[in-house]
């Protein structure tokens, strides 16, 4: 017990903040990008749909290290895009917190996109037709009719996206590396301390992760439950 207190008092809390920051930013980006992409894919032709959907879903089904490898190819400072970003905009993706965000976003994005699309496809097309014949603009229809109706689906997509982004390990470790205080997220820290044989610290971090994950999912469920009370669905 004394040992636990000793570790806790000397614990470097930075991985917690890095993970949370990464998760929130990645979820925000995925949220908007996922919704826009979902709408775009729904509107495209059947053949295009299958192709685009396949590409967008790949990061979810591939091992994260494969995604990490591709991201490294893209953003490496020895590659055209990486050189361009670094020399003209002083943006460094590899071995930086930005890398954490990029990796987490790429991995978590398909969850948002797929959930948003599934939720939108459930919306009765007549609601949209009704909005149009009532003289509502397309924007009004989307924000006041479609989005609220698809709300529960979009929200659960957001929860999953956040959870996935928070726990991202494979792609992050390849792209952003494990720089303490900068890119070292909780999952990377756990892996590191286990390699050092420090099971106690690993256990403490594991408990923290479990606590955060449960808290978020619980909170989100409460919120979505409140919104869904009036909508009859099975």
């Amino acid at each position: 017990m004394n040992e636990v207190i000793k570790i806790l008092s000397g614990l470097d809390w930075s991985p917690l903040w890095i993970s949370l920051k990464t998760g929130i930013v990645a979820t925000c980006i995925s949220f908007f990008l996922g919704i826009i992409t979902a709408r775009w894919v729904m509107k495209s032709s059947k053949g295009m749909k299958a192709v685009i959907d396949g590409i967008l879903t790949l990061p979810m089904v591939l091992p994260p290290t494969v995604a990490g490898f591709f991201l490294l190819l893209l953003f490496s400072k020895r590659r055209p895009l990486g050189i361009l970003l670094y020399e003209h905009f002083s943006i460094k993706v590899v071995q930086s917190w930005l890398g954490c965000i990029v990796a987490a976003t790429v991995i978590a994005f398909p969850l948002m996109y797929r959930n948003a699309r599934a939720a939108f496809e459930q919306v009765d097309i007549n609601l949209i037709h009704a909005g149009r014949t009532l003289g509502m603009t397309e924007m009004q229809i989307f924000f006041r009719v479609v989005l609220p109706t698809a709300g529960p689906g979009v929200l659960s997509g957001t929860i999953l996206t956040f959870a996935r982004a928070l726990g991202e390990y494979g792609a992050t470790s390849m792209l952003a590396g494990n720089i303490p205080g900068k890119t070292s997220t909780i999952s990377q820290r756990i892996a590191m301390v286990i390699q050092d044989g420090d099971y106690l610290t690993a256990g403490i971090w594991t408990l923290i992760v479990i606590l955060i994950a449960f808290l978020i999912v619980f909170l989100m469920n409460m919120i979505s439950g409140r919104n869904m009370k009036h909508i009859k669905r099975w």
């Binding site: 009765d124 609601l127 037709h129 909005g131 006041r144 909508i231």
Partner: peptide, 8 residues
Amino acid sequence: NYALFPTM
């Protein structure tokens, strides 16, 4: 099916 907006 009347297409009433379900959340309003």
